[in-house]
Nucleic acid binder design. Structure first.
Length: 276
DNA sequence: AACGATCCCTGTTGGC
DNA sequence: TGCCAACAGGGATCGT
């Protein structure tokens, strides 16, 4: 599912096409895709004719600066992906947003489960939106071990749930949280406040190791229907996963069988020998 | 305040 | 073989 490495891989592939491009024909075809704007038609009205100044990312949100202080925000949700096409290419199912650049390239947002969205915010709207409370980016702005320690202090929620909470560190999802906990040797159900300083340090240092490897491989494509790069290719990190989706298989570190349990309403994959 | 539960949605999977 | 319930999950929201 799209997490930070998938969103960052998508951003890097879009940079050349979108940076400095003027958007011409803009279309939104599903009410849920534009639901974060009070009026979904604002997405079309605000983007049409305007130039994209810069394409950034915070956590799992693509955030582009657009002329006149607007912020164009795209979230891939669970099943969203972006594809670049020529305007005459056949439109595939679940295409809910299209925008043509002045160079004649069409960007499409494809999202079968409609958990994702496309929105355009004014500065005032952005400060009112929950995404203004997003935490620090897990790749570009990772908190220090001391800051992690303060945040975890006396917390009773399982560490897995806390890693998925986007309000402190933004960008981790179910797959990479499992991988990070495995690399750090921490059990997903450990209460956040129970982690010793050396464990917090291992956890914190595992974050960039896992995420940067994910970005280098173009992200994780679980199957052909979910995340793909904008040119339609699959990301290659699937083969590198140590625990996610490996239930019943031997741990590559110790040979113990990988187990699965539900933590924070999400399936968690872990090695009970490596992770304590 | 912190935490857990629920809901949104649809393609795929697994059980009977 | 065919049908249908269960499952997948990011984030907003709500109840305790």
């Amino acid at each position: 599912m799209p997490e930070l490495p998938e969103v960052e891989s998508t951003r890097r592939h879009l940079l050349e096409t979108l940076t400095g491009a003027r958007l011409e024909a803009v279309w939104i075809g599903h009410p849920r895709t534009g639901r974060r704007n009070q009026r979904p038609s604002d997405v079309v009205e605000r983007l049409t004719g305007r130039r994209v100044e810069r394409l950034g990312r915070r956590g799992k949100f693509l955030m582009a600066d657009v002329e006149d202080d607007l912020t164009w925000v795209i979230h891939l949700g669970m099943s969203g992906r972006i594809a670049l096409h020529g305007p005459a290419d056949p439109v595939t199912a679940h295409t809910h947003f299209r925008a043509t650049t002045d160079a004649g390239i069409e960007m499409r947002f494809i999202d079968p489960r409609t958990f994702g969205f496309v929105a355009v915010f004014t500065p005032e709207e952005l400060s009112d939106d929950p995404l203004s409370r997003l935490g620090r980016d897990a790749l570009e702005d990772l908190p220090t071990t001391a800051e992690f320690s303060t945040w975890l202090d006396s917390r009773t929620a399982p560490i897995k749930a806390l890693l998925l909470d986007q309000r402190f560190v933004a960008g981790l999802g179910n797959i990479y949280a499992d991988e990070i906990l495995h690399l750090a040797g921490v059990h997903p159900r450990r209460p956040g406040g129970s982690l010793r300083l050396d464990e917090i340090e291992r956890l914190r240092s595992a974050v960039p190791l896992v995420l940067e490897a994910g970005v280098a491989m173009g992200g994780t494509s679980l199957d052909d229907l979910a995340y793909l790069l904008p040119d339609g290719r699959a990301g290659d990190y699937l083969d590198r996963l140590m625990v996610y989706g490996n239930e019943g298989e031997p741990c590559e570190k110790c040979g113990n069988v990988i187990e699965r349990m539900v933590v924070a309403q999400r399936s968690s994959h872990f090695c009970s020998r490596c992770q304590v």
